[in-house]
Each structure stands twice: as structure tokens, then as C-alpha cells.
């Protein structure tokens, strides 16, 4: 029963990780850009949700569509300004320079968040009890956020594989020249991918702050967490990343129980090092 409980907790946490990682994966897959400002977008959206929900008393989940749309527009505005000019320099050069640009963006966003919200950890007090079912405890916050995350991920998956614009995005990520040969406007696809990636990161932020406390300085931890998951799951592979996210959730849940809370937070870093040593090829695009 205990083992089952640990598994349930892990899978619920993993559900949230799917969303955290998939948004980074989307941007990387299409543009070869590792968006180091990923965690900053999550944190900014989370802290905004905290501020908005606590000052108006509105249900934090109701903020999600609004945050999603606003951050999509922010992404659509930033991409042509910061990322697109690098794309002309060729993929390998662009990958390196985009690391620097998004690192700078991360710095700016985190400092702005510190100025606006300060450095203390905050969380949205919402759904704090748990449901009991078949002798197992289901944290309400984790169940609801996990379901939201699963829903958003499923929508993303459906959009990528079943719609013309989604398939165009997959095509452009696998061969830019090939996509152009189909008459796809690759520049527009890149903007769309970045906008969607930022919006999904923001959606993740709204959900994360319901589950755990955030502060601006946690941005980089979230970026790294997402990076570990997409490295484990295979860069650019959507199914692989979803599986890796769920597994990491379970692995954290197990270490958290048997070793302790701190070990839980160290685990992604240990895994990253192990993966880099054992399977260096994993860091190539799938």
C-alpha cells in the first residue's frame, strides 16, 4: 500500500513535470534553442498568479487562460526581436548564441520579478486537503494540477500530430529545407513555436505555484529540471519526454520517502550527471 502511495504521488508530480518539460522541448525541437529563460517564464507566471489570486480572491486556475494568452503574445513579441536574428547565422552558431541571449533574458526576468515581488517564497493556498480512495491519499492540489497538465499536454500532442499547423511545426523541426519545399513559412513556425513554448511554460507556472512555493530565484532550478527531463526523454521527442517526466516524478517520490526531502531535490542533478557520463549521445537531437 505504501509503495502504491509513493507511486501515485510520483505520477501526479510527474504529470506536472510533463508540462514543465514539454514547453522547453517544443522550442528546442523547432529552433535548436535551449531557452534558458524557461524557468523565469514559469516563475513570473506563477508569481503573477499568486499576486492576482491573493489580491482578488479569484480561483487561481481561472487565471490560466489569461496568463496563457498574454504570455503567448509576449513570446511572439520576443522571438523576432531576440531569437530570429540569430537564425541567419546557421544552426550551430545560433544554438550557442541563443544560449547567451536567453541567459540574459533569464537574468532580466528574474531581476524584474525580484523587484516586483521580492525574494520570499510564496504559494497559493488552494486545494490543500486530500481525497481518500481505496486507502490511498490523493493530494487535491496535485490531482487537479496533474489533470490540467495532462489535459494541456494532450491538447499539445493532438495539435502537433493532427492539425496542419502542428504538423508543419514538426516538419520544420525535422528539416527546415524540407519544410520550405512544402511551402511552409518556417520563420512564422519558429515564432509560433516560441510563443507556444512560452505560453505553456506560463501555464505550468500557474499550476506549480498551487503545488509548491516559488520565488524568483527558483527559476534556474526549474530550467534545469526541464532540461534534465528532455535530456532523459530525448531532445525533440514528445512521447519520450512525457515518459521521462513521469519517471522522474516517481523517482523523486521514492528518494523523497526513503532518503529524505533534500535528496529529492538533488536527484535531477545527479541524474543529469549520470546521463551525461553514461549516454553522451542522449544530448543530440532525437
Amino acid at each position: 500500500m505504501l509503495a502504491l502511495q509513493i507511486l501515485v504521488n510520483g505520477l501526479l508530480l510527474g504529470g506536472l513535470y510533463v508540462l514543465i518539460a514539454q514547453s522547453l522541448n517544443l522550442i528546442f525541437g523547432v529552433m535548436g534553442v535551449v531557452n534558458l529563460a524557461h524557468g523565469a517564464f514559469i516563475v513570473v507566471a506563477g508569481l503573477f498568479t499568486y499576486w492576482f489570486a491573493s489580491s482578488t480572491g479569484i480561483n487561481p486556475l481561472a487565471v490560466l487562460p489569461f496568463v496563457f494568452i498574454v504570455m503567448a503574445l509576449v513570446g511572439a513579441g520576443l522571438q523576432p526581436l531576440l531569437i530570429e536574428p540569430l537564425m541567419k547565422m546557421g544552426r550551430s552558431k545560433a544554438e550557442l548564441l541563443s544560449l547567451m541571449v536567453t541567459f540574459g533574458l533569464d537574468y532580466v526576468l528574474v531581476e524584474l520579478a525580484l523587484q516586483v515581488w521580492g525574494s520570499s517564497f510564496v504559494s497559493v493556498p488552494y486545494l490543500q486537503s486530500s481525497w481518500k480512495l481505496a486507502g490511498l491519499d490523493f493530494s487535491q492540489a496535485l490531482v487537479v494540477t496533474g489533470m490540467f497538465a495532462a489535459l494541456v499536454s494532450a491538447l499539445l500532442y493532438w495539435w502537433l500530430n493532427r492539425t496542419d499547423s502542428g504538423k508543419s511545426l514538426l516538419a520544420a523541426s525535422q528539416s527546415e529545407t524540407g519544410a520550405i519545399c512544402c511551402g511552409i513559412d518556417v520563420k512564422r513556425v519558429r515564432m509560433l513555436a516560441f510563443a507556444l513554448g512560452v505560453a505553456l511554460a506560463a501555464a505550468a507556472g500557474v499550476l506549480v505555484i498551487i503545488v509548491e512555493a516559488l520565488a524568483p530565484q527558483t527559476a534556474d532550478d526549474l530550467t534545469l529540471l526541464a532540461f534534465v527531463i528532455i535530456a532523459l526523454g530525448g531532445l525533440g521527442s514528445y512521447v519520450g519526454v512525457a515518459v521521462a517526466a513521469l519517471l522522474l516524478g516517481v523517482a523523486q517520490s521514492i528518494t523523497g520517502y526513503f532518503v529524505g526531502g533534500n535528496a529529492e531535490y538533488v536527484l535531477p542533478y545527479v541524474l543529469l550527471i549520470l546521463v551525461m557520463v553514461a549516454l553522451p549521445g542522449r544530448f543530440r537531437r532525437a
Binding site: 504538423k167 528539416s175 524540407g178 511552409i184
Partner: peptide
């Protein structure tokens, strides 16, 4: 050739 290695033959025809 610049195909999309992880998309199906049908997807290629559809995208074209």
C-alpha cells in the same frame, strides 16, 4: 532529400 525522418509517408504527401 531533406525528408522528415519521424513523419510518415502519408504525412509527407499531406504536407506537400
Amino acid at each position: 532529400r531533406e525528408l522528415f525522418p519521424r513523419l510518415s509517408v502519408a504525412d509527407h504527401l499531406e504536407l506537400g
